[in-house]
Structure formats: C-alpha cells, structure tokens
Measured scan of single mutants.
Amino acid sequence: KRPMNAFMVWSRGQRRKMALENPKMHNSEISKRLGADWKLLTDAEKRPFIDEAKRLRAVHMKEYPDYK
C-alpha cells in the first residue's frame, strides 16, 4: 500500500468532519468539496501536511525498500 500524499493526510480529518456536518452528503460530493478546499489553502497552510507526507514516504521506503 502506498504512503498517503499531503492531500490524503489533510483530507483524512477533514472528511470525517464534513461527513458529520453533512450526514446526507454523498462521498463523491465530499471528495469534490475537499479537493476545492485544498486548492484554496496557502502553501503555509499545506506545509504541515506536506511534511507529514514526506515523513510517511521515508518510513515507507525504509520498511519496503523494493516497493515500486
């Protein structure tokens, strides 16, 4: 299984929150909104998620060195 990218790290928490706030919203609509919201974030706002994704990638490479 591939490590999560920055968007996936960020959206994991946001998806739960949005689903709780909008229980009747379909998952596909939540995904569209999350994508739009992510694009509106500044680089500074994205930085912690980018850093976490880099950390996850490094751990994955160490655990699965032959993964392609």
Rank of each mutant, 00 (worst) to 15 (best):
K1Q: 03
K1I: 09
K1T: 10
R2P: 09
R2C: 12
R2Y: 11
R2A: 13
R2G: 10
P3L: 05
P3D: 14
P3K: 08
P3A: 05
P3W: 01
M4R: 01
M4K: 03
M4I: 15
M4V: 14
N5L: 04
N5W: 03
A6P: 06
A6N: 05
A6C: 04
F7S: 01
F7C: 01
F7M: 03
F7L: 03
F7V: 03
F7D: 01
F7I: 00
M8P: 05
M8H: 08
M8T: 11
V9S: 01
V9C: 08
V9M: 11
V9T: 02
W10E: 07
S11K: 01
S11C: 12
S11D: 05
S11A: 14
R12P: 06
R12Q: 15
G13K: 09
G13V: 15
G13Q: 13
G13P: 00
Q14W: 00
Q14R: 06
Q14Y: 03
Q14V: 04
Q14L: 02
R16G: 11
R16H: 15
K17E: 12
K17C: 04
K17T: 11
K17S: 08
M18S: 00
M18G: 01
M18R: 01
M18K: 01
A19C: 09
A19P: 03
A19H: 15
A19D: 09
A19M: 13
L20Y: 10
L20S: 12
L20P: 04
E21S: 06
E21C: 04
E21W: 07
E21K: 00
N22S: 06
N22A: 03
N22W: 04
K24R: 08
K24T: 06
K24C: 06
M25T: 05
M25P: 06
H26F: 04
N27F: 09
N27Y: 12
N27D: 13
N27I: 04
S28L: 05
E29R: 01
E29Q: 02
E29P: 00
E29N: 00
E29A: 07
E29H: 03
E29G: 01
I30Q: 05
I30T: 05
R33P: 04
R33M: 07
R33E: 06
L34E: 07
L34D: 04
L34T: 04
L34R: 00
L34P: 00
L34K: 04
D37A: 13
D37W: 03
D37G: 09
W38R: 02
W38Q: 04
W38C: 05
W38L: 03
W38T: 04
W38M: 02
W38H: 07
W38D: 07
K39Q: 09
K39Y: 06
K39C: 04
L40S: 13
L40R: 13
L41K: 04
L41M: 10
L41V: 03
L41G: 02
L41T: 00
L41P: 01
T42M: 04
T42R: 05
T42C: 02
T42E: 05
D43N: 10
D43S: 07
D43Y: 10
A44P: 05
A44E: 14
E45F: 12
E45R: 00
E45K: 00
E45H: 03
E45C: 03
K46Y: 00
K46W: 02
K46R: 11
R47Q: 15
P48F: 00
P48L: 03
P48R: 05
P48W: 02
F49Q: 02
I50C: 08
I50D: 03
I50E: 15
I50W: 03
I50R: 10
I50G: 03
D51T: 07
D51R: 04
A53T: 02
A53M: 00
A53F: 05
K54H: 11
K54D: 11
K54T: 11
K54E: 14
R55D: 07
R55N: 10
R55V: 04
R55F: 03
R55P: 08
L56I: 07
L56S: 07
R57A: 14
R57S: 14
R57C: 12
A58S: 13
A58K: 09
A58T: 13
V59E: 14
V59R: 08
V59M: 12
V59C: 12
V59S: 08
V59G: 12
H60W: 11
H60P: 13
H60C: 09
H60S: 14
H60M: 13
H60E: 15
M61F: 09
M61W: 06
M61I: 08
M61D: 15
M61T: 12
K62I: 05
K62C: 13
K62M: 10
K62A: 12
E63F: 04
E63C: 02
E63Y: 06
E63W: 04
E63K: 07
E63Q: 10
E63M: 10
Y64W: 11
Y64T: 13
Y64I: 10
P65L: 11
P65W: 11
P65C: 12
D66C: 10
D66E: 12
D66W: 04
D66F: 09
Y67P: 15
Y67C: 14
Y67I: 13
Y67L: 12
K68R: 00
K68A: 15
K68L: 10
